[in-house]
Amino acid sequence: MPDSSPPRLDADALRVHLGPDADAFALDLRGECESTNSVLIDHVPADDGRVPVVACDLQLAGRGRRGRQWQAWPGASLTFSALWRFPAGAPAPAGLSLVAGIAVATTLENLGVAGVELKWPNDIQVHGRKLGGILVELASARQVAAVVGIGLNLGLPPGASIPGRSDVTALDQVIDTPPPRERLLADLLRTQRTLFDTYAIGGFAAFQGAWNQRNAYADLPVRLTGEAESVEGICLGVDADGALRLQTDTGVRRVLAGDVSLRAAG
Rank of each mutant, 00 (worst) to 15 (best):
D249P: 10
D176P: 00
F80P: 03
D197G: 12
A105N: 05
L27E: 04
A216M: 01
L14I: 11
S97H: 11
I234W: 01
S5W: 06
P163R: 11
G251A: 12
T191H: 02
P87R: 12
A257N: 14
V168A: 05
V39D: 13
Q59T: 05
G202C: 04
A13M: 15
D57V: 10
L188M: 10
V99H: 03
A170N: 06
R253Y: 13
A210V: 04
S35P: 07
G132M: 04
L40M: 07
R214T: 02
P179H: 09
P221C: 03
D10M: 13
A206G: 01
A114M: 02
L188A: 04
T106M: 09
G62A: 12
A160Y: 05
W84I: 06
R66L: 15
L246Q: 08
N153Y: 04
Q125E: 13
E232M: 01
A243Q: 10
P91E: 15
T198Y: 01
E182C: 01
I41C: 14
R50C: 06
E137L: 09
G258E: 14
V252L: 09
K130Y: 12
N122F: 12
P45K: 04
N37Q: 14
R165S: 00
D21M: 04
I162Q: 08
M1E: 07
F207Y: 00
A76Y: 07
R181A: 14
V238C: 15
D48R: 08
W211Y: 14
L40T: 07
G132I: 01
R66G: 09
A82F: 02
L118R: 00
L138P: 14
G128F: 03
L111G: 08
V126F: 05
G251K: 12
N122S: 14
I124D: 05
I124G: 04
L262Q: 11
G159K: 14
T225S: 13
N215T: 02
L189V: 03
S230V: 11
D249M: 09
A146F: 04
A170V: 02
S230H: 06
Q173L: 11
E34Q: 13
M1Q: 05
S230M: 08
L224W: 14
T107P: 01
L195R: 11
P157S: 10
G49K: 12
E232A: 07
R254F: 14
A26H: 11
R68V: 07
D219L: 03
D167R: 02
W70Y: 08
D239V: 01
L60M: 12
V126C: 03
N122E: 14
L256I: 15
P179S: 10
G64H: 10
G132Q: 05
D239C: 07
L262F: 10
S77F: 10
L135D: 06
L96T: 13
V252S: 07
D28H: 08
L195F: 09
D3G: 02
S77T: 11
L220Y: 00
A11D: 13
L60S: 09
L78Q: 08
A243S: 15
D241G: 14
A243M: 08
P20M: 06
E109I: 00
L171G: 01
S77C: 15
A186F: 03
K119G: 06
